[in-house]
Amino acid sequence: MLTISWPEMNRRDFLDKGLKALLAIGVLDINQRDELVIGHGDFRYTIDVNWGALNPEFFPVQDCHEMVFDRLGRLILLTNHTRNNVLIYDRSGKLLDHWGTTYPGAHGLTLKDEGGEEFLYLTDTVRHEVIKTTLDGREVMTLPYPRAMEAYSSANTYLPTETAIADNGDIYVADGYGMQYILQYNSRGELLRYFGGRGEGDGQFLNAHGICIDNRSGREELLITARQMNALKRFSMDGKHQQTIPLPGCYICRPVVHTDSVYLATIWSGNGSARTGFLSILDRSNHLVSAPGGATPRYEEGSLRKMYQAIQVFQHPHDVCVDADENLYVAQWNAGGTYPLKLNRV
């Protein structure tokens, strides 16, 4: 490796005059220090691909599925690698802690402050369960598959992908890889109701992958992704369909509400091919205003034009986490065992 510094030479001149010969022979290239900025409008970011990198011999990941921040500002990452299902970082990307060896299908991760103590809710698509733990990994409750429901003939038909926890403690489970129901439990784990189910109706889902509580209107509502339908659906807390927000070309994983915006890792785009993901950011009116890594969002006669990837920044973004400075952390599914990357807001 050859390092050259040129404190007094203009970089472009240097490129133009000094390196053309090297470039011409095709064995060396200049890696520009200029940083790419992606996104649109007020939501633009530089990219730190190395933010969460660790030594995979000691702390391997398989799919990095979801992330949450705790109140100490620690970023908690869930992976389905059973050497360490949970990795806990500080905001600089330093590993602080790790735990978990019994969640082979670790997928959904939600954090809830319950009377001053924070708890995690994990979904596991291999164990066919939802597991509630303390932040250091002690299991305090398990929700098995809903055998009382006629729709579920066996545990194998229940593949929960995400949870959302209401302020009253009710637990909403999205069976996004299973029968497409949203199951509402009380805080003791008793099934109260279910809604949704597989189908193309307003209140139904194809791949009800992610769910969250949306407080932006001043009251609690549910936002649920219908990933294969390229749509975000809004429901009342008792399961009544309120609105469908079409996002053509956007295969959205889970909604993350932060201040007035909704952030959605978009695992595929366009025709749904592999490695076509980007991020989707909606404003208070649920309009797509920025698509880091994607084409320019454009509305024509009130409808979003079909979205697609423009730059290959991401492989399969599966979740996005927002810090207090509105930087983004992106976990990826099926990305060669790579760690979360960070987008710094500019």
Binding site: N31, Q32, R33, D34, E35, L36, I47, V49, T276, Y308, Q309, A310, I311, Q312, V313
Partner: peptide
């Protein structure tokens, strides 16, 4: 340093 990304 900074990576060079590819168009889709």
């Amino acid at each position: 340093g900074s990576p060079r990304f590819q168009m889709s």
